[in-house]
Amino acid sequence: MTMVLRMASLNKYFGGLRACCDFDLTLEEGELQGLIGPNGAGKTTVFNMVTGLYAVSSGSIEYYGRNIVGVPPHEITQMGIARTFQNIRLFPNLSVLDNVRIAYHFHAGYGVSDSIWRSGHFSDKERELTERTQEFLAVFNLHTRQDEIARNLPYGEQRRLEIARALAAEPKLLLLDEPAAGMNPAEVGSLMELIHFIRDRFKLTILLIEHQMRLVMSICERITVMDFGEVIARGTPNEIQNHPKVIEAYLGRTAALRGAPLAG
C-alpha cells in the first residue's frame, strides 16, 4: 500500500499554548480513517496544518513522500488535498454553480487576457468547465438548484454542496471536518451513504473528524483519538470503543474505571 499522508512529531504552538503535541498519523491509499477526540483536542488544528492554513511549529508532513510543510495552501490544494470546514464555509452570495466552478478554477486552462478578449479558446474552455460542473452537480443531485444562492440552501444541502465543492478540486485526499455536525439521525444516515459513495466513485483517501460516534464507528476502518493535542489511542473501531484512555477522555475517570464502553 502506498502511504498518502505521514505526519511525524508535529507540533503547533499558539504563543505559550501547545495545541498539537508530537502528533503523528499515517494514512494509506484508499483508507477511511477517523480522527476523534473531545472538543479542543486539536483535531481541526491538524487539518489546518495539513492544508497549510496554519504554519507548522515543528515536525513534518509528507504527502506521497513529499514534505509539504511551508507550502502555501493553494498549492497544497492543487497537489490534491481538499477539505471541508467544521462551520460550513461556502461562498455565501454566489450561486451553487459558481461555488463549484471556483473549485474547478485550476483546471480552467485560459489566461486573464483570454477572458478579457473573449477569445475562442476562452469560450470553449468556459463552456467545457460549466458543463463539467453541471454534470458534477448532477452526481450530487444539486443540478436543479444550480442558480440558487448558496446561503439560501437548506443546511443539509449546504453540507452536500461543500463536499461537492471540495471534490471538484479533484483531490486524492479528502479531509472532512465534522460533516455531521448539526444533523439529525436520518441525515447522518444519508451522509454515511454519501461518504461511502464518494470514496468508491472518486477513489479517495479520507480523513474524517467527527463527534458522532455512530458515524465514526460504523464507517471508519481505523481511528486515531486525540486529547490535549496528543494521540492517546489508535486502532480499529472495536479496539477504540473499549480503550480505557478513550473512555476516560470522553466520560471521565470513574466511567473508565467502571469499564463502560462508548456508545456503538
Binding site: 490544494t77 471556483i102 478554477h105 486573464v112
Partner: peptide
Amino acid sequence: NLLDSSHGRAVISIREDETAAKAMG
C-alpha cells in the same frame, strides 16, 4: 469580461471567504 470568467470568480471568491478560497486552490 474579467469578472465573468474563472479568474473573475477567483477574485470574487476572496471577497466571499478568503480562507475557503485558499482551501479551494
